[in-house]
Simulated scan of single mutants.
Amino acid sequence: MAGFGLLTGCGSPHMSALDPKGPVGETQLDLINLSTGIMTLVVIVVAAIYIYVVIKYRERPGDDKDEIPEQVAGSKKLEILWTTVPIILLIILAVPTISTTFRGTDREPEPGTLRINATGYQYWFGFEYPDYQVSTANEVHIPTGRKVEFLLAAHDVVHSFWVPSLGGKQDMNPGRTERLILQADEPGLYEGECAELCGASHATMRFRVIAHPPAEFEKWIASRKQPKSKPKTEQQKQGHKLIAQNCIGCHAIQGAGYDILGRTGPELTGFSHRTRVAGALDNNRENLKKWLVNPQKIKPGNRMPGFDHLDDKQLDAMVEYLQTLK
């Protein structure tokens, strides 16, 4: 790990393959260390041979400039040596690499494994929990100490699912279901992103994995099954009406009378508890209003139209209602 010290400032502390928080990530870090060790060994040996040859066979005063050193072309011993050694090193690297790769996509997950359907869209991630009949978007909640089987698919173009602190990448392909098994051993927030160039807003196609202790995860599931989505104040009621007029063709809100209508955009149930707006901005009223007015400025090429035709009072009402969804 010391060799990677200079790289620790290159990204988010919640998004590092060099600081794994689960068994899959730890195994993959072992592979990184193994491959780095092999490459370092090769560099040291080659450099040592190079330095030795340069010093030993350098031209010295008094040498016969016409003398030709002993030629070793066609030496069977040397040819066997420099053919066999790389093969041995490749085998040492290939065996654990192949084993780890297939272990992460086992066809028969262990009993008790949590299943989550993850779908990539331009430019957001949708998550469904078939065992609990709940869904969410851009933030996926999991219990600690329990294996999670992500069933990965893409709605439009090829995406890639990557949570560096928990495990490696897996492509998400339209028309196919890929599998990835991850586990978080510590509660916390882990950054994820699409690692496949998927369009103009690829760089802002991010999501978060939020790992809870098992009891807290069950509480989160319970809250998702009984969401608080009814408006109370007049402003919230106005926002609820505007959402119905402008958003429900694409979005669903459980418990608000819009449970099954919108399915082409992110699920909005419990929106106030999300840490980000559209996976790109901190979730606060100011950023939410910016998103509603001009989503193309924040995520160019996304499928959501802007609501710049609404006045400030109407936008504030929409923001107020969305920020009360629990």
Rank of each mutant, 00 (worst) to 15 (best):
G168A: 15
G255Q: 01
G37L: 13
G104R: 01
V43M: 14
Q238G: 13
Y121M: 02
A200Y: 11
P130Y: 03
P86D: 05
Q296L: 13
S135V: 02
I32R: 15
P130V: 04
N173G: 03
T144V: 14
A118L: 04
G74C: 06
V209K: 06
T324L: 08
L114W: 04
S223G: 10
L78D: 01
I55Q: 14
L261W: 12
G37V: 03
A278H: 02
N283T: 00
I243Y: 05
K219A: 11
S12G: 00
T144M: 12
T269F: 12
G270R: 04
E26D: 03
G265C: 04
L189H: 13
M172L: 10
L322W: 00
T119I: 12
S165I: 03
H202N: 07
T177F: 07
F217E: 02
A2L: 15
G168C: 05
I38N: 03
R179S: 12
H309Y: 09
G257V: 07
L322F: 05
A154S: 14
V134G: 05
D19Y: 05
V293H: 02
T101S: 15
E218T: 06
K225S: 11
G270W: 02
L7I: 04
E110G: 06
R263A: 03
A154W: 01
V148M: 07
